[in-house]
Amino acid sequence: MKISFLKIISFFLVIFTIVVFFIALSIDKRYSTENIVGKKIDNFKIKFLSHDQIFENKDLSNDKYHLINVWASWCLPCKKEHPILMKLSKDDNLNLIGINFKDKKKNANNFLKNLGNPYNIILSDTDGSSSISFGVFGVPETILINSNQIVIKKFIGPLDTKDYKNILNVIYEN
């Protein structure tokens, strides 16, 4: 009796496993960004790129959406997404904050001089540690937060025109 009980259990375990495998085949297994979406961003204190003053959460104006873009002059995809950022910078309802990631001040300034500066505020995270609290994997990454500092969307990798439309949709929907 006990043996047949074992048989039934093992049979169902096997069926269950196979079904899970079948479902798992069709699941997308890229980095998930969900962990951070819908949460308020952490308190941060980051230095400005141009001078030694410090920028904090409370300095964020509370009537606009903010787009936090993590970039570096040594990062090639950052060059690729730059035109999109330039386009977004024309929108007055969006506050663009650039976090310069593990970069040299001179190179960062050259980068902006050559390609244009889309940012309203430029901060500098020289050792990359402040970016960890935004859940950053690498550069470029972009986080859209609303006026209450809640994360609405997170983009990993360079922004493209689809992301551009996406961002505008979020801003003008409400």
């Binding site: 593990k102 050792d127 990359g128 540690s129 970016s131 960890i132 994997f137």
Partner: peptide, 13 residues
């Protein structure tokens, strides 16, 4: 990797 170096800094901090 860069990511690992950064995480190390943060953890030590």
């Amino acid at each position: 990797s860069d990511f690992a170096q950064t995480i190390k800094i943060v953890v030590r901090d």
